[in-house]
Amino acid sequence: MAIQYALLLLTALVFVVPLFWMATASLKGLQEIYTFPPVWIPTQPKWENYPNAWNAAPFARFYVNTLITTFFGVGLEIVNAALTAYALVFLRFPGKNLIFIVLLTALMIPVQVTILPNYLTIAALGWLNTYQGIILPGASVAFTAFLLRQHFLTLPTEILEAARLEGAGHLQLLWRIVLPLSRPVLVTGILISVVAKWNDFLWPLIVTNRLNMRVLPIGLSYLFDREGNNQWGIIMAATIFVVMPIVILFVWAQRHIISGLIAGATKG
């Protein structure tokens, strides 16, 4: 038991200490951050780091932009993935396996490879500096479809058969039966997607040129000095308000993952 707790504590420390450091550093001056041995609690909290960070770049605008791109990006991605996974599991059509293999292959292509062709397409459509330009290339993600498919395979077919006999159509089956039964996986998929979209840096940077179309992760880069002469306290303060919504979402959503897992277990 003691060993288990020790290991648990160690794991917790590995995850918590960086967050703790980020939070305390956001209230420190540069000298206190750089000093050795480290100062864990700021002696004179510099609250002004927060307004300074917020005013260093138009963060309100970045927030709005990120909310829009994340919301629609995640929405499209999940709808897309659910439809794909449903078709791959519950429909019979020629070439199904081939399509699945192509999907798996897409998992293995690094993002960097797709940047240029995507950019050319978006530029040709005249969508540089637009929300749709930021969102659409991420609207279909192979991993999410794969994740849902693997879970759909484990669902008992009897329930679906029964519903089908009652006269439910495909979309009804998906919406009323399959997705509610997949809640933990769905929440997991949404979380992964939210984190990816919220944190995405390279693509929004490439596809936007103007300040008013930029998103939060690029906003953070506005605080960095080119020669490494960085005001870490201010950068950490900005990082706090950039990651805070994600942390809150996680805390709120983990309930659903756990209750969902338990619900599944008792039924089995």
Partner: peptide, 16 residues
């Protein structure tokens, strides 16, 4: 004037 990230990111954007 449009900020495009670090020197390397700017170069990457310019190439694209």
């Amino acid at each position: 004037n449009q900020y495009q990230g670090t020197y390397e990111e700017t170069a990457q954007k310019l190439a694209t």
